[in-house]
C-alpha cells in the first residue's frame, strides 16, 4: 500500500483586495472585492511506504499548502487525498496519531520551559503511556544527542539544538510518516548536515516514510531518492533524484575575489558568468570539471583572497527544467 496518494489536488485561496485611498476602503466595507489565488493546481503523485520524497520549489510554489492539506489542516478545494488510507480533512484526529510534522519556521516547544516538559506534554497528548514515553525519550536523546539540552529552557537553545528537539518531539509517538516543512531553513552547513543524517537514520532504522519540502537543493541531493518539483502550484518534474542530479543539479557556483587584478582563462566545464578585475562568478559543470579540479585551477592562478561555493538557487534550477522541457518539445 502506498503511504500517500494524491489525485488532481487543487487549493484556491480567496483573499480580499484592498485598494488604496479612503473612498476605496469605505466601499470595501460594504462590497469587498476578492481575488482568487490558485496555490495548488491539479497535482497528482504517490509516495510509497518507507520512501523519502523531496517536494521542492521556490518560495510560494505551494509546498506548505500541500503539506497542510496532507496533514488535514487545510481542506482541499478539489481533488482526492489518501494518507495511510485516511482522508486527512475528514479523519484529522485519527490521522494525527500516525503522522508527525515539523515546520522549520515554527516551534511546537514551550519557549520558557526545557524541551523535556514539552516532550512529556506531547506524550500525554498522543496517549503514549509513561513507560513507553520514557523509553522513547531516552532513545531519541541518544540518537539526536540531546543530553544536557533536554533540561535547558528552549529560549536558551541555539537554532540547531532547537530544531533537533523539534524533530525529536515529532517522533515521540512513532509516526509512520514524518512531514518536514523546510527543516533546515536558517541552519549552518554543519548543523544542516547532522539533521540530514538524522533523517536518513530514522528512515533506515524505523522505515519511517519521509515527506520533505525544501528550497535547498542540498537537502534533496543528499537524502532523497525521488524529487517532485513544484512551481506556481503545478508539478513540473517527478523523477528519481539521480536524473535530477545529472540534468539539473550538475552545476555549482563559485564566487572568487583576488588580491590583485587577474585575467582568467577558464578551463573546460567552467563558465565565466560575471567578472571585474579582481572578482569573478563562475559556473562549474561538475559532470565535466569537478569542484576539486576547479579549485586547484583557481588557486594556481594565485592571489586568491576569498572563495565561496554555492548551489545555484532554486529559481535557476526551475528555469533550466523549463528550458530542458521546451528543448525536448522543439
Amino acid at each position: 500500500m502506498s503511504a500517500i496518494h494524491v489525485e488532481n489536488l487543487s487549493k484556491v485561496y480567496r483573499t480580499r483586495i484592498k485598494e488604496e485611498g479612503l473612498k476605496a476602503s469605505f466601499k470595501a466595507l460594504f462590497k469587498p472585492v476578492y481575488k482568487e489565488v490558485q496555490a495548488v493546481d491539479d497535482i497528482s503523485f504517490t509516495v510509497e511506504q518507507g520512501e523519502i520524497l523531496a517536494f521542492i520549489g521556490p518560495n510560494g510554489a505551494g509546498k506548505s499548502t500541500t503539506i497542510k492539506m496532507l496533514t488535514g489542516i487545510l481542506h482541499p478545494t478539489s481533488g482526492r487525498i489518501s494518507v495511510l488510507g485516511l482522508d486527512p480533512a475528514e479523519e484529522r484526529k485519527k490521522l494525527s496519531y500516525r503522522i508527525g510534522t515539523v515546520f522549520g519556521q515554527k516551534s511546537q516547544l514551550w519557549f520558557h520551559l526545557p524541551p523535556i516538559d514539552s516532550f512529556v506534554l506531547l506524550g500525554a497528548i498522543y496517549d503514549v503511556d509513561k513507560k513507553t514515553l520514557n523509553k522513547r525519550i531516552s532513545e531519541l536523546t541518544e540518537l539526536f544527542e540531546l543530553g544536557d539540552i533536554l533540561q535547558t529552557p528552549v529560549r536558551k537553545l541555539s537554532l540547531g539544538q532547537r530544531i533537533r528537539c523539534e524533530v525529536a518531539a515529532s517522533l515521540l509517538h512513532e509516526p509512520d510518516i514524518l512531514f518536514l516543512d523546510e527543516p533546515t531553513i536558517g541552519l549552518d552547513v554543519v548543523v544542516k548536515q547532522s539533521i540530514r543524517q538524522l533523517i536518513l537514520r530514522m528512515n533506515r532504522e524505523r522505515g519511517t516514510t519521509i515527506f520533505l519540502t525544501s528550497h535547498d537543493a542540498g537537502d534533496v541531493e543528499q537524502i532523497c531518492k525521488r524529487a517532485v518539483v513544484i512551481d506556481q502550484g503545478r508539478i513540473i518534474l517527478d523523477q528519481p533524484i539521480k536524473n535530477l542530479k545529472y540534468h539539473y543539479l550538475n552545476r555549482k557556483i563559485i564566487a572568487v575575489r583576488f588580491e590583485y587584478p587577474q585575467h582568467l582563462e577558464v578551463p573546460e566545464g567552467v563558465k565565466l558568468e560575471k567578472s571585474t578585475d579582481i572578482s569573478a562568478r563562475l559556473s562549474v559543470d561538475t559532470r565535466i570539471c569537478t569542484i576539486d579540479s576547479a579549485m586547484r585551477w583557481l588557486i594556481a592562478q594565485g592571489g586568491v583572497a576569498d572563495i565561496t561555493v554555492e548551489n545555484p538557487p532554486m529559481e535557476e534550477i526551475i528555469a533550466s527544467i523549463f528550458r530542458h522541457k521546451e528543448g525536448r518539445i522543439q
Binding site: F103, K106, I125, D127
Partner: peptide, 13 residues
C-alpha cells in the same frame, strides 16, 4: 496569522 496554528490543529485533542 503566523501560521503556528498548523502545529495546534493536527493533534489528537
Amino acid at each position: 496569522k503566523s501560521g503556528s496554528i498548523a502545529y495546534q490543529l493536527n493533534r489528537p485533542y
